[in-house]
C-alpha cells in the first residue's frame, strides 16, 4: 500500500523528498503492525455485521419459502427447512401466473415507449435548443417529484372516462406518460455530453434532424437506453399505487395480485415469501444481467418511488 501511495504521489509530482519523509514519519504511517491489524479486524467486523443486518430479512424470507406449513412452526425463522419443499412456490405460481404475465406485458411495452419518448425529448431539449427549452425541461423535471396522490382523483376519472379502467391499456398509458420525465432527464444528461460539433458536422454533411437522430444519436446511446430501460422496468414493475386504483379483477398486475394473495385472513408466510420471491425474480434477473449499468443510472440522481 505504501509503495502504491508513493507511486501515485510521484506521478502527481506534488511532493519532494523532505515532505515525503515527514509523511512517512507521521502518525498514520507509524502505527505498529499489531495496531494496524486490530484496526483492520474491527473494520471488517463492522462491515460484516452490516452485511448480516442487510441479509437476515432476505435469508429468513427465502428459507421460509422452502418450508411447509408444519416446518414453518417447527423450525426457527432463520433456520433452513427440515425438508425443503417447492409447495409454496407451486401455490404462488398458480396464484400469480396470470398477473405475472400481465405485468411482464405492460411493463415491457411501457418501458419501451417511455424510453423512446424520453430519448426524443432528451434529444430535442439538448440538441435542438430553442427559446424556453430550459423552462420546459424544468417543467418536465418537476414531474419526477410529483406526489401521485395529488393527481389520483383526476387520473382515476380520466381513465374511467376513456373506458380503459381495469385494462392493460390503462397501465401502459399511465406508466408511459409518467415515465417520460425520468427518461428525459436520463437521456438529456447523456446527450449533453455529446459534443455540439458532432451534430454540426452531421448537419453540414447533409443530414437532417431525423437522420441525425437515427444515424448519430441512436447509435451513440446504447448506454442510456440500458440505464433508462432498467430503471423504467424496475419502477413500473414495482408500482403498487396505480395498480391499486386503476385495475380490478379483470387485469391484475402482479404487485396487486401479490398483496391480494398475502393479505388473506390467515397469512401463510411460506406462500407469501414464495410469492414475493417469484415477484422479485424478473427484476433480480435484470439487475444481475445489467446491474453495472443500473448503478450508473442510480448515480445520475435517479429517484425511486
Amino acid at each position: 500500500m505504501n509503495s502504491h501511495k508513493v507511486n501515485q504521489i510521484e506521478k502527481l509530482g506534488v511532493v519532494d523528498d523532505i515532505k515525503w519523509e515527514k509523511l512517512r514519519k507521521s502518525k498514520g504511517f507509524k502505527l505498529s503492525k499489531v495496531k494496524r491489524l486490530i484496526k483492520r479486524v474491527i473494520l471488517y467486523a463492522v462491515l460484516i455485521v452490516a452485511v448480516l443486518i442487510t441479509i437476515i430479512p432476505l435469508w429468513s424470507g427465502i428459507m421460509s419459502a422452502f418450508k411447509t406449513q408444519a416446518d414453518l412452526s417447527l423450525t426457527s425463522p432463520i433456520a433452513p427447512p427440515l425438508i425443503p419443499t417447492l409447495e409454496p412456490f407451486i401455490y404462488a405460481w398458480l396464484e400469480l401466473q396470470r398477473p405475472l404475465i400481465n405485468s411482464v406485458l405492460f411493463t415491457t411495452i411501457a418501458t419501451v415507449i417511455s424510453c423512446l419518448l424520453g430519448s426524443v425529448c432528451g434529444f430535442v431539449l439538448t440538441k435542438l435548443k430553442f427559446k424556453g427549452s430550459k423552462t420546459l425541461f424544468m417543467l418536465f423535471t418537476i414531474g419526477i417529484f410529483l406526489p401521485y396522490q395529488s393527481i389520483l382523483v383526476p387520473l382515476f376519472i380520466t381513465i374511467r372516462n376513456l373506458g380503459i379502467y381495469d385494462t392493460m391499456w390503462a397501465m401502459i398509458l399511465v406508466h408511459s406518460v409518467y415515465g417520460i420525465p425520468m427518461t428525459t432527464l436520463l437521456f438529456r444528461s447523456y446527450y449533453d455530453s455529446i459534443p455540439e460539433s458532432l451534430i454540426n458536422a452531421a448537419k453540414t454533411d447533409g443530414a437532417g434532424v431525423m437522420a441525425i437522430y437515427r444515424r448519430l444519436i441512436i447509435p451513440l446511446s446504447p448506454l442510456p437506453f440500458v440505464v433508462a430501460g432498467v430503471f423504467q422496468f424496475t419502477s413500473i414493475w414495482n408500482d403498487y399505487l396505480f395498480a391499486l386504483i386503476l385495475t380490478g379483477a379483470n387485469f391484475e398486475p402482479a404487485s396487486f395480485a401479490l398483496s391480494n394473495m398475502a393479505g388473506g385472513t390467515e397469512t401463510a408466510w411460506n406462500n407469501t415469501m414464495a410469492g414475493t420471491f417469484l415477484y422479485s425474480l424478473p427484476v433480480l434477473l435484470i439487475f444481475v444481467l445489467l446491474g453495472k449499468y443500473l448503478m450508473q443510472g442510480l448515480m445520475a440522481g435517479a429517484i425511486k418511488g
Binding site: 442487510t54 432476505l58 421460509s64 425463522p77 403498487y240 407469501t272 422479485s280 446491474g291 443500473l294
Partner: peptide
C-alpha cells in the same frame, strides 16, 4: 460488500414490506 448493501434498494417496496412484516410480527424473526 457494495452489491450486498445495495441489494435492499433494488427490491420492490412490496417485497421488502412483506419481508419486514415477517421480521416484525409477534413471533417473527
Amino acid at each position: 460488500f457494495r452489491t450486498i448493501y445495495l441489494l435492499p434498494y433494488a427490491l420492490s417496496f412490496i417485497v421488502t414490506a412483506y419481508l419486514w412484516q415477517w421480521m416484525f410480527i409477534e413471533d417473527g424473526v
